[in-house]
């Protein structure tokens, strides 16, 4: 964006999308959506089933290619074709399905797709993995996030509970220095206590200056952690509200079409 003013309130968005459209044959999933994500904020995306939340997220994270529209990261135009492209641009995603390999252990999953190799000819010629370094770093990263539910980094993911798996997935997303984290329904499968832990982690991310996009059905969760809330309805943006200006009931009314956002 060109309007780089000095005031912090009008800072440059780290992620900015304009006019995103995605259709699947005759089905219009999203119909011209604009999104801005600012540094150090938690932006929640809410909407009814079929409102196009998942499609929007997939377009922002390279899992789908939008038919029309532009995406900019730090003011730079990006054409994501794969999730790796988005990852390289600094956008990490925790999918609802978590994308963990169940038969591998926690350390192997944290480093999946970016394994470390031994220094010297062992790594260079023989391409040997540096297992000890990966294990050590995995332990550091997990404990730095304050995730208490994971104790043994060599545990096979298949043997973990839902909350523990979520923690591993989030740890992987934030462990590699990216600035934008997208969380798709991170608390949908969790109990109250595990949900509280995940929200704690989300608040921790904001304190570290990261930007978070949070997709959730759970209004209390959303109103607890979000700075701004983007309400989607029938593939379009029905409005952007904040927890200070609107109540959860009002947000739901906009989401379902019972009320509309007249002002702004």
């Amino acid at each position: 964006m060109s309007a780089t003013t000095t005031a912090t309130t009008t800072a440059t968005p780290v992620l900015s999308a304009r006019g995103l459209v995605k259709t699947y044959g005759p089905v219009v999933a999203i119909d011209g959506i604009d999104v801005d994500l600012y540094p150090g904020e938690v932006l929640a995306v809410i909407g009814d089933n079929g409102a196009g939340k998942s499609t929007l997220i997939k377009c922002l994270t390279g899992a789908e290619i939008p038919d029309v529209g532009t995406i900019e990261v730090d003011g730079e135009r990006q054409d994501f074709r794969t999730p790796q492209d988005a990852r390289e641009a600094g956008i990490e995603t925790v999918y609802q399905t978590l994308s963990l390999a169940p038969h591998l252990d926690i350390a192997a999953n944290l480093f999946l797709g970016r394994e470390l190799r031994r220094p010297g000819p062992l790594g260079g010629v023989l391409r040997m993995l540096d297992r000890t370094a990966m294990r050590r770093q995995a332990e550091e990263k997990v404990s730095a996030l304050g995730i208490r539910t994971i104790q043994d980094i060599s545990q096979i993911v298949e043997t973990l509970s839902g909350g523990q798996r979520q923690a591993v997935a989030i740890a992987r997303a934030v462990a590699f220095g990216s600035r934008i984290i997208v969380l798709d329904e991170p608390t949908a499968a969790l109990g109250v206590r595990e949900t509280a832990q995940v929200l704690e982690v989300v608040e921790g991310l904001r304190e570290r200056g990261m930007s978070v996009v949070l997709i959730s059905h759970n209004m209390p969760n959303v109103f607890q952690v979000a700075d701004r809330i983007l309400i989607q309805r029938l593939g379009r943006v029905a409005g952007v509200v904040t927890p200070k200006t609107h109540t959860a009931a009002e947000a739901v009314a906009i989401m379902t079409g019972a009320a509309s956002l007249g002002e702004e």
């Binding site: 899992a63 978590l98 994308s99 390999a101 038969h103 999946l112």
Partner: peptide
């Protein structure tokens, strides 16, 4: 050696474990 000590080997296991998850995790 290739299966146990290289990232290619890890990726073979990961693809067999859950192909979609591995793709989303950045495995080609």
């Amino acid at each position: 050696y290739c299966l146990n000590w290289t990232s290619w080997g890890r990726h073979v296991y990961a693809v067999g474990s859950d192909e979609d998850a591995s793709r989303l995790a950045g495995v080609r």
